[in-house]
Amino acid sequence: MSPVRITLDGEPFTGRDGQTIAGVLLASGRRSWRESPSGAPRGVFCGIGVCFDCLVTVNGVRDVRACRRRARDGDAVTTQSRAGEEAR
């Protein structure tokens, strides 16, 4: 399987082909990547696309569920918070 290289806020992460974005981050030991409205860290909760806790921005597109989206080589992922949502 070929490696998949993505970045999260510029920091590089390497995963395996077929992994989700959340899977790549979790496998590297990263547990959280989103901030709740009060600024608390959030990561994966439901793992199946129901809770929306793991939302990230992928290549400029906001509100992507990291637990459902397959990571693609070169994906530039950025974290998002509610403050960003309000500024939209």
Partner: peptide, 10 residues
């Protein structure tokens, strides 16, 4: 709500 707490399904 702490990261690391998840559902069994996750």
């Amino acid at each position: 709500e702490l990261p690391g707490v998840s559902t069994g399904g996750a």
